[in-house]
Write a protein that binds this DNA or RNA. Structure first.
Lengths: 346, 346
DNA sequence: ACGACTTACCCAAACGATTGGGTAACCGAA
DNA sequence: TTCGGTTACCCAATCGTTTGGGTAAGTCGT
């Protein structure tokens, strides 16, 4: 409601207090705590009058003033590589929802995966006095996290993990293993991986899970069959071109650690006259809403993106409450579709 | 940098002042205004000493305290249907960037296009004391905007417009016209429109632009060839199914007011054994990064999403400065690709 | 030598909420 | 009667900045 007084100002505690002829602190105590502190602070009758008036005048506390006094803003800062990455956008929706449930609001900023920008945005968040940070763009090789920890900034990681820090992620290793099992069982023996950016644990873990399981099954993966790439469509296309140019014999299956890269790869295959889901199998990761809707539906590892976001919020809340936290790895599920649903013979 | 004092608190104006043996207000005046107010407030030498110490101690002003005093938060609230809609995510990137340039931070919230939720999020933003709102989910039939205007809340619209309020949008009517011209010139005479949600000006304007121009060219569009739908892939698929089921003769071209709906439509066509870009032309809208990368590249109207976001910020800034604002409609460009790049005969 | 300016500061009151520490009034028990 | 304990409040300081209004000291003009 957020009403204003006759003269246009927003309603304050003092307004309520003077209208009822009681002291602002009493009003604060009544409105502040559900009932615990209120009990003992005022009579039931007064409490009711206060609450009634607050509702009537549409009082809403000023978070600036409260924050100034209490030194907490009830704000969580979220840093992601880019919100136009569907995966991060969905995680953010989970965050937004879970944070609202806990009475927190969230700030998001894009770092474009640029270390310089990560620093700037982090500082910008801290200048805004966020209570804590959810970092969705952690690089495995960056010192930023150590610094933050040294400065005792409360934070948790999301999406990507870094050993030694609490994080909410998908079990990416397992995801890679699921794909290895699937492709192996469909008869593929000659595969390649579009591996993503080597600074991101998502890329590294998915690739490692796949490669290690593949070898455990008795398969071989030559060094040049693992191609690091950007996470977007163009990156996937380029990686696929590289694979087609250098791998001999040509792989019968591609695992891209990201749906967008997979879509790019499908485009490249098609340009080379290869039938996706017939000549070459393609499997992506994340099962974004597009995967199932593509002209040739894309097999993909479904990661619980909303839950990852929600979990990150819960972890950060625990950190803010000074409790112990442990990293959470949520289980993915493989969704097999037309793009890899054919048996090939050795 | 955001440093802390020996005892772990963050550095305040008072800390700087007492270390230099001057009054906090003097420090404030020096740090506050670039040079205008500083001139006359302190000697050049003192000013330099203050700035030097501020840098050394990593002083950053507390926005809570400043906001409490000045009654402005330097916060812009942004409300979008959903950030997982790539179009809105990109506009938000434009906002984020432009707002940062002006010294503002932004809050985003998802309303899921639900009127109830729009109210809740708006209130939540105002409770946070944002200086103004950028509304990206305006419904043509909602009273919310009138209420906000009556309450003198500073706001501008983005993405969707509503007559009577300032907005930053794509010239959607023009976009629709471009598609009509294109399809007509390729020889199509029998077309259908996947029109989107009727409460969104984007959908209405694009459809109107297309239909009006089509008729102006001498074409006909039966009533059942315009199908309202959701904006996502599934919505596009359903709408295409409806069109295929009810339109006789079958259209040779489909215009979807949104790339995702277009992708869904391509899926539906394919399931019916129709070749996109051979039997049926498909044109989408927004030219999201996917359009060009699809197995069959999708023709699409490119809308300047980043600029729309940036413009919205500039408009809101003008409103906050108490200046006059006029709505801005940015020009789109048609990108023709394989999905509609064939000539058909009548 | 006197007033008028200017320079370079200081003072104190806000902004709105929170919170540790009162205290007056009343009740019941010893 | 006195004391302890409640109940139902009030008081005042505090968070970190900002800002309107001082004022003492120095400069300049006459």
């Amino acid at each position: 409601m957020e009403e204003t007084t006759a003269d246009g100002r927003t309603v304050t505690l003092k307004d309520l207090a003077s209208e009822l002829g009681i002291h602002p602190s009493t009003v604060s105590r009544i409105l502040h705590s559900g009932s615990e502190v209120a009990r003992g602070a005022a009579s039931v009758a007064t409490a009711e009058r206060v609450r009634e008036l607050a509702r009537k005048r549409g009082y809403s506390p000023d978070p600036q003033a409260a924050g100034l006094r209490t030194r907490r803003t009830h704000l969580m800062g979220v840093i992601v590589p880019r919100l136009s990455d569907l995966v991060l956008a969905i995680m953010y929706e989970g965050i937004d929802e879970a944070a609202a449930d806990l009475g927190y609001s969230t700030f998001v900023m894009n770092s474009r995966d640029d270390p310089e920008e990560q620093r700037r945005k982090t500082d910008s968040m801290l200048a805004r006095r966020v209570d804590g940070l959810i970092i969705g763009d952690a690089h495995l090789d960056s010192g930023l996290l150590q610094e933050l920890a040294a400065r005792k900034v409360p934070f948790v990681l999301m999406n990507r993990r870094v050993p030694g820090f609490p994080s909410a992620t998908c079990d990416d290793v397992l995801g890679g293993e699921l794909v290895a099992d699937h492709l192996w069982s469909m008869g593929h023996r000659n595969v390649a991986v579009i591996a993503g950016e080597p600074y991101a644990s998502t890329a590294v873990d998915r690739t490692a899970g796949f490669v290690d399981r593949w070898r455990a099954l008795g398969g071989k993966i030559p060094r040049n069959a693992v191609v690091w790439s950007r996470f977007d469509t163009a990156g996937g296309r380029e990686a696929a071109e590289t694979i087609l140019a250098h791998c001999n014999p040509r792989p019968t299956a591609l695992f891209a650690v990201n749906d967008f890269a997979a879509i790019g790869a499908m485009g490249a295959l098609r340009s080379h006259g290869l039938g996706v889901g017939r000549d070459v199998a393609v499997v992506g990761f994340n099962d974004t809403s597009l995967a199932a809707e593509l002209p040739i539906p894309l097999s993909s590892v479904r990661s619980p993106m909303l839950d990852i976001g929600r979990t990150a919020v819960q972890l950060l809340k625990r950190v803010l409450d000074g409790r112990e936290v442990e990293s959470v790895r949520l289980k993915p599920v493989l969704c097999v579709r037309e793009s890899s649903d054919f048996v090939t013979s050795v």
